[in-house]
Structure formats: C-alpha cells, structure tokens
Nucleic acid binder design. Structure first.
Lengths: 270, 270
DNA sequence: CCCAGTTTTTTGTCTATACATAATTGCAAG
DNA sequence: CTTGCAATTATGTATAGACAAAAAACTGGG
C-alpha cells in the first residue's frame, strides 16, 4: 500500500505513471523495468535511464528509484557501476536452477494422500565407505533408516538415510511413525551446507523389490548430504523409478520459480 | 568505504561495533545476523531484536537497519511481520537448488579440453509429439541437431536439440562447427522461461552407440525447454552415462552456491 | 468467558539532504 | 599522440523525520 506518504510535497506531481493498487512505488518501478527487460524491449547491454531521470518520470525521490534499482541489481537482472550507470545484465545459463521438492509438502499442496512406510530402522556403527564420504570418524554411531514414500497408493520413491547421532541425539528416541525422517530433521535441525548428486543406476534385486520396478530398470538417484558448519548431519539417498516419475522444474532468469513433481506421462507446460 | 557520512551527528557514538574494512554498515549488520543464523545461535523461529534495538546497538538510523533486514527478508533468511517483528525463517527443502552446468564453460574453467561432434543436422517439419510438448503448430519448420560433448577424450553427454526456426531464423545459416549449438543460442537469444525435466532411462541401441555405453545401461536424461515470452525457442535433451558422471551441486540456504560437474568416482566434499 | 472496538507497537515506505566514491571525460603539459 | 591531473557525474551510503498499515494487546460490555 503506502499512498504518497508525505503531506503536500509532491511539488512536481509530474506525469506520475498510474500505479497498480496495493503496491509500493519502488515495487512499481521494479516491475516496470523487469517487464521491459523480460519482454526484450530493453535487451542485454541496454543502458537504462539514470536515477535522476527516473525520479522525474515517476515524480519521486532518488532514494525510491535507488531502492528499486538496487533490488534488481541484487536479483542479478541489471548491473550497476558508478558514473557509468545501470545496464541490463546478460542472461546466464548458470542461473538456470532446479529445485528439489519435499514429498509430504508437495503431496499436501496438491491434495494427494501421502503415506510413508518405515522398512528399516537401526542404530549401528558407520561403515568405512560412508565414513569417507561424510567425513565422520570410523566407529561413529549413526541411525540407518530405509523409508518408502507412497503418494495416492503409488510408490514415488525409496529412501535410505544415515543420520549422525552425535549431531542429532534426539533421533535415537524417535520412531518416525508419524512423520518421515526427512521432514522431522528439517523442522528441527538447521543446516548450513548441502551437496546434491544426481545420477542414474540400474536397479539391483533389492532396489527393484522395494521400488516396485523390474530388475535392471533405470532409476533416478538423488543423493543429498547436509552439514551444519562442518559437522555432518545426514545423508539421504532417494531412488525414483526412471519412468513415469520425473523431477521437474520451471523457472525464469529472475529466479522466482514455480515447481512441482511430475507424475505419469509427459505433458506440455501446464 | 562509507565512513559515517554526516558531519557530527553521531551523538550517541554508542558502542559502534567494530566494522570490517571496506564494508558498508548495512552490510555489516547483514553479515552479523547471517552469521548468527547460520551458526545456529539464532535458530529457526527465533525473534530477532527490533529495528529500534539494533539502531541503538549499532548507533545508526533505522533506515540502515531496515535496509539490512529487508535484504535478509528478500533473501528468504528471515520473515518479517508488522507489529510481530522479524523471526528466523525455517530452512526449507524448497530452497535446495541444483544448478545446471554448461559444458564448454565448465571445461574451460577447469582447464580441460572440450570438443563437440556434430552427428546430425537437418531442417525438417516438427513431428506431432514434439509439437504438443512445445506448443508449436504442426508443420512448423525446426532445426534438428544431434551433438556429442567430449571432455578430455571422454564422452560426457549426447544431446538432441530442436530449435524453432520461426523464432531463431539465423540458425538456418549456421553450421555449429566452432561452437556447440547450446552456447550459440545462449549468446544470441534471451529467454524468459524454462522448464527442466530430469529422469532416468535405459539406453536403447542407438543411444548406447552414441554415448558409448552398454545397451540397457541406466542413463540420466535432462530435458530443457526454453521460451521467450510464450514463444517457444528450443528443446534440448541431454543424456549422460549414469555411472561415472553425475550432476552435482553444493549450496547453502543463503543461496550462493558453488558448482561443478563431477566426473569419475564419488568423492567426499571437494 | 467471549467478542467487539480501541490503543499501541512495529515494520513499510517515502522525502529531502549530505557526503563518499568510482569512473569517465576533458584539458593541458610533455 | 600520449600521459597525468582535475573536473564532472552517477551511484553508494547514511541521516532524521513523517505518515501508513498491520497486527498484537488491551479494554469493556454482554
């Protein structure tokens, strides 16, 4: 909201471009510019008007224009340099980004029925290979859990997880009957670093059985390791059937994506 | 930069926490808070000090504190509500993000030798299935290209691409001998929307031959469709060998990730 | 005890001004 | 024609003051 806040000082009044209802002036400016860039009207490299020009155009103070432009700069859409002015930034492939979804949340959002089966749960000493991957000392005690994620009766994924009990001792006394372990952790433990690996593997006999696919079928594997300031928290390995289930992401270079987990056959953009 | 800007008005002078050299005050405040959150000192849900408290603590104006907090809010690290104050946001799985790498750029950055083989290149009418996926009219003319990406003599990926010639007519006269088609497009055509799909498939005879893997081996597939304001630009389908090559991403909830394409065997964090 | 209306607190936005800093531009000396 | 210095200019940061709006907290009546 914020209608012009100060008594009578709009001395210029100016052209005062029409403003969308319920939107601050700096937001309006931001949207205008964003639109000009995204539509191609202002191509990469284009030098945008100086702050003092915009403040005339919108009949506002420089600080307001500055706030809009600073935000766009932080967003990576424009680049600013003293004396030289602001120019539209070149779109970069690196900004292309894929977001990873959480099952329970995703299912709930789309009104589907979510269920998880706890297939295994035991406390054990870490094995050598995992110790190396995670940076834990050999002999550390970890919680090992195997979970199956089921949405609307269909097996969406099979998950194997290791939790560092030194970092998350509360996990010892949890059965994870009500809440999948990933969600539980997320609500409790803040993380500072994570690492994702995505790969494809042929299902071995055990995985095929647990995922409900044929032996040797291609499966998508998503491995995530999470740290809290150099101390290892957890490693999750998620397996998805390769066919029928895919990780999908939609996004734009401005970086405010809308996401979902696609199920079933391929479809065009919703 | 930016030593206290106004003549003598630091009437309080206050404790004036020591400031890192070459950093603005609002940046310092931001970093302080960010650090407190990331270290766990301020856990999710923690209500941070009010603006007026912080302005006492740092001996500055409210606008300065406000700028810092607004930035953190835009970044998604805190949530702000009138009257209620600001609280540390819960880390969300949704913020976990995977960045897609560009071959040529990635190879160059790590000093490796990149090469691409143009296996097929022809102009044809779009087929029915692709027309549906992309929203193009049946009968539209597209460029179809098949490329192999080779880094240091190893086949990293096989790519099949379709380019909408109505949107990118220059592509008709390009041989793409010097530059892979993806890089060429990126430099030329700005995009506004994209969609990624990641899946796993078993290699059929042709894919196995072109990727240099065994028949039926699990392969990672990355499909990317790009639009410029509702007009379809291009669809790329990238196939990676499932073993030995993985998409990998490291990041933190603040959202400034460092990325790479992992090759060979699994390794711990760099 | 609950519900409505009023008060108070906190963030949101904006203005006007001031000085700092980086970078380009122009000018003048070599 | 080049080099170096000064002037100019756009952005960067900060201040103090003002009003707006949302929401929690309080208050009084039923």
């Amino acid at each position: 909201m914020a209608s012009p806040a100060v008594k009578a000082s709009t001395k210029k009044a100016a052209v005062a471009a029409p403003r969308a209802r319920g939107q601050s002036l700096n937001q309006t400016i931001r949207n205008d510019i964003e639109h000009k860039i995204m539509s191609g009207e202002w191509p990469p490299g284009f030098r945008l008007p100086f702050e003092h020009e915009m403040m005339e155009q919108y009949g506002c103070s420089r600080m307001t224009v500055n706030k809009a432009l600073s935000a766009l700069s932080a967003q990576g859409l424009i680049m600013r340099r003293r004396r030289a002015g602001s120019v539209v930034a070149a779109p970069s492939a690196d900004r292309a980004v894929l977001q990873i979804v959480d099952f329970a949340a995703e299912a709930q959002r789309s009104g589907k029925l979510y269920r998880h089966d706890m297939l295994e749960r035991r406390i054990e000493e870490i094995d050598a290979a995992t110790a190396r991957r995670t940076g834990l000392k050999p002999g550390s005690r970890v919680l090992y859990a195997a979970t199956r994620h089921v949405v609307d009766g269909v097996i969406e994924a099979y998950e194997e997880r290791i939790v560092n009990l030194a970092a998350v001792p509360q996990a010892k006394r949890e059965s994870f009957a009500d809440m999948p372990i990933g969600t539980w952790l997320l609500q409790r433990v803040p993380w500072s670093d994570a690492e994702h690996i995505i790969g494809a593997i042929n299902a071995d006999a055990r995985l095929a059985r647990r995922l409900g696919v044929e032996r040797n079928a291609a499966c998508l594997m998503l491995e995530r390791r999470t740290w809290q300031n150099t101390v290892f928290l957890t490693e999750a390995r998620l397996y998805y059937p390769g066919t029928g289930h895919r990780l999908i992401g939609r996004f734009s270079p401005t970086g405010n994506p809308a996401f979902g987990l696609a199920t079933g056959t391929d479809r065009g953009r919703s």
